[in-house]
């Protein structure tokens, strides 16, 4: 039996491109659903995470103030001692 190979190849093409597009289309849909669900029920954590460097900076400032206070106290103490 003579097989029409070109016809077979064209059938492969229809099947292949169809499956690729269906797969990617379903993927796009699920990505959109996922983005919607996450956006709605798990609000962006970004603002929650950004304060951390800010608090670190403020802690730093506090620490500096404390060190300054200690130095000032020590110099005062030494002055009184002499």
């Amino acid at each position: 039996m003579e097989v029409n190979v070109i016809g077979e190849a064209l059938k492969f093409m229809v099947l292949g491109m169809g499956v690729v597009f269906i797969f990617l289309y379903v993927m796009i849909l699920s990505v959109k659903i996922q983005a919607y669900v996450i956006g709605k029920y798990f609000p962006d954590k970004v603002p929650a995470s950004t304060p951390s460097p800010a608090t670190a900076a403020s802690e730093n400032a506090e620490e500096k103030a404390r060190v300054a206070a200690v130095i000032a106290a020590v110099t005062e103490f030494r002055k009184n001692k002499s």
Binding site: E8, A9, G16, V20, M27, I28, V31
Partner: peptide, 25 residues
Amino acid sequence: LANPKTALLGGAAQFGIFGSLVGAV
């Protein structure tokens, strides 16, 4: 994820595979 519909372009380019399949046959 920011622009999911561009995924279809990645699908269209697979025509290279199936188009050349016909050519190779």
